[in-house]
Design a protein around this nucleic acid. Structure first.
Lengths: 106, 106
DNA sequence: GACATAGTTTCGAAGTTATGCAATTATATA
DNA sequence: TATATAATTGCATAACTTCGAAACTATGTC
């Protein structure tokens, strides 16, 4: 019974990094090569490659080679859905905080 | 623009621990005291308390005191929704793996 | 084969997280 | 005030994560 919590925590762990979150959002638009992701994020190729390897290890992304390039894409659209919901949680938290701040300013 | 990825990763980070995931699922049923959570999880009070403090710091749970007890509850039902979706991602991954295993056994 | 480009892997330093133990705080009750 | 129960905090330590630099692998072109 406890095993499921561990596995589910691992899914979160994969998404629990700002670079990997940025990669997920970048791939939302469609498949991209490592170099494209590197340029978009403004980070080293080594770093992006390592994060892609984590994402692939948890089966959140797939990859396919085409000549010199390797194209990465989101493995399951539900990952995007989960991210969307977490962003909603976040925005509701932020707007809640703003309401409180507004009250204090009165 | 990058800040949002950091914040969103932080939301994930909060959920990226099996004990905290177990607490979230335990609180899904309704508010509970620390002692109840301790008994349910079979861990030390110190440990549960520290994880509750992380969850509270990210505003995922609320607490209210009633006499000697402190009752914890989920702050936003969307947190449960996000967890549900992540579990779906997980179960789809597991069943996908099983399909592949079945093919190999032929 | 030599060279260029795309991507991965290895390694070590720096930072972060999880845990139990012991000490502390808060409330209730006699 | 003394004592019991509920919960939190501080601290040490072991385990894990992140990152860049350099070395390596894979593919394409001359």
């Amino acid at each position: 019974m406890k095993e499921i919590f561990k596995l589910q925590a691992d899914v979160c762990k994969t998404m629990a990094n700002p670079v990997r979150m940025e990669i997920i959002y970048a791939l939302k638009e469609g498949e991209k090569t490592v170099t494209e992701l590197v340029e978009e994020a403004g980070l080293t190729k080594s770093n992006i490659s390592q994060h892609l390897s984590v994402l692939k290890g948890s089966e959140m992304v797939r990859s396919r080679r085409e000549g010199q390039n390797i194209y990465y894409s989101i493995a399951n659209p539900k990952i995007i859905e989960a991210c969307r919901l977490m962003r909603e949680v976040l925005t509701e938290q932020l707007s809640e905080r703003q309401k409180i701040m507004a009250k204090i300013e009165d």
